[in-house]
């Protein structure tokens, strides 16, 4: 299963990658903004993507919409600091399969991924 990370924080990208090692995903890469994420997405067409929202160039909500136009079955998990209900509901309405707020623990992200994968 191809896996991709989108977050403008280097530390968050490294942490998500480390915390998800247990799944033995085929990690195709990480991007720091929505524009770079779309390039990477088009190149690899990953099956599961973690997506930050507040990012430069193109935010995660716009990127989510574009990703789902390209490959609607992609399982996108939003991982964001934005803790208001409206943003969470908006992301889920657009088609995100999961929503996790920062800060998160290793156990929390693993639980969210398992839930999205139906495990």
């Amino acid at each position: 299963m191809k896996f991709m990370i989108v977050d403008d924080s280097v530390i968050m990208r490294k942490a998500i990658e480390k915390y998800c090692k247990t799944f033995n995903f085929d990690f195709v890469g990480a991007a720091g903004n929505g524009i770079d994420a779309l390039k990477l997405f088009n190149e690899h067409l990953p099956d599961i993507v973690t997506m930050d929202i507040t990012m430069p160039e193109m935010d995660g909500i716009a990127c989510l919409e574009e990703v789902l136009k390209i490959k609607p079955e992609t399982k996108v998990i939003i991982i964001t600091a934005l803790k208001d209900k409206e943003t969470g509901l908006k992301a889920l309405r657009i088609g995100a399969k999961g929503y996790l707020t920062k800060p998160f623990s290793e156990a929390q992200i693993q639980e969210e991924i398992k839930s999205v994968l139906g495990e």
Binding site: S9, I11, T54, A81, L82, D84, T87, T101
Partner: peptide
């Protein structure tokens, strides 16, 4: 990241 998380969480 800390500043972003604090600002985002207060929402």
């Amino acid at each position: 990241e800390i500043t972003n998380t604090i600002a985002g969480n207060v929402r």
